[in-house]
């Protein structure tokens, strides 16, 4: 599943400004996400072992003092690999999301403001893109370009651009129909001005939420893509690839396959907790 499923999003009613306050669940979520972001940044300085170093003669070795999470399918330290994987999983997902939201958002607002033929052409174009299954597009890209971080970011970004386009366009269309935009248009303001000054500030809340959700989708898609062979270059690995490469250990419940999956789940749930508990002004009521 992916963010293609964005249907409609309606700008939340503008509430009077109040103090930004998160409930407990939101704080927990923010804590988990913050923890992983910190790990991603300082990862290389705190890893107990080199990501590629063989530290265990056994495969899927058990937990012990030197290897707190055991060893992986070649006898490498699972903890170190998860720590390093954090940068790739979170980094790639964040970069791809940013790119997708930037492209989709810009074009979405452009379509909303321009209306008519431009809107029609862009909408049809993104409709066509959405209708090609996302894992298939990824497969074609892998076959054509191989697998590297820029390719990963680009692929995931392209896959999520149509979704971002749809939601930004829907939000912008709503605002665009409001009186003050019409007034500005009547004043003879240009498209750029309308987008920058009139529309963007009024949809900022929901689109930030959308950014968070899309980030989650991107992370999940990345882990799914690892099944098809798309991932960062060895010896590094993102979390999805870690699950994939150690799947032989699943029957024995090896931590090498369980822990990366737990890491993915923790970030996903963390981001979701934050989004779900955002005060009304920040949430887009349409889910995706």
């Amino acid at each position: 599943m992916s963010a293609d499923q964005t249907i409609t999003a309606v700008a939340a009613p503008a509430l009077p400004r109040r103090r930004f306050r998160l409930p407990l669940a939101g704080i927990i979520g923010a804590g988990v996400v913050g923890f992983w972001v910190v790990i991603a940044i300082i990862g290389p300085y705190i890893v107990p072992h080199d990501v590629g170093a063989l530290v265990d003669d056994d495969l899927f070795g058990r937990m012990r003092w030197a290897l707190p999470l055991g060893s992986d399918y070649l006898g490498r330290d699972v903890l170190s690999r998860i720590i390093i994987g954090a940068r790739y999983s979170i980094g790639v997902a964040a970069a791809a999301t940013f790119l997708a939201v930037f492209m989709g958002g810009t074009l979405g607002m452009l379509a909303a403001v321009s209306r008519g033929a431009v809107d029609m052409a862009l909408s049809r174009f993104f409709d066509a893109l959405i209708s090609i299954p996302s894992k298939m597009s990824a497969l074609v890209v892998i076959a054509a370009l191989g697998s590297s971080i820029p390719v990963l970011v680009g692929t995931v970004a392209v896959i999520y651009t149509p979704g971002a386009f749809r939601i930004w366009r829907a939000l912008a269309v709503n605002v665009n129909a409001l009186d003050f935009v019409e007034v500005a248009r009547a004043r003879g303001e240009g498209t750029g001005y309308l987008i920058r000054e009139e529309i963007l500030p009024n949809i900022a809340g929901p689109v930030l939420t959308d950014f968070g959700l899309r980030f989650v989708f991107a992370m999940l898609l990345l882990s799914g893509l690892s099944f098809l062979g798309l991932g960062v270059q060895p010896p590094n690995a993102d979390w999805g690839s870690l699950v994939r490469e150690n799947i032989n250990g699943l029957a024995d419940g090896a931590l090498a396959v369980v822990m990366p999956a737990v890491a993915i789940a923790s970030v996903t749930i963390g981001v979701n907790l934050v989004i779900d508990n955002l005060p009304g002004r920040w949430s887009s009521t349409g889910e995706h």
Partner: peptide, 25 residues
């Protein structure tokens, strides 16, 4: 509501191939 939300989010967060392989095992 909270339980249903948490449960569905957790399930979605597990890679599909892991669910499939685990189900088979």
């Amino acid at each position: 509501d909270r339980a249903a939300n948490f449960l569905t989010t957790s399930i979605v967060a597990v890679p599909e191939f892991l669910i499939a392989t685990l189900a088979v095992i």
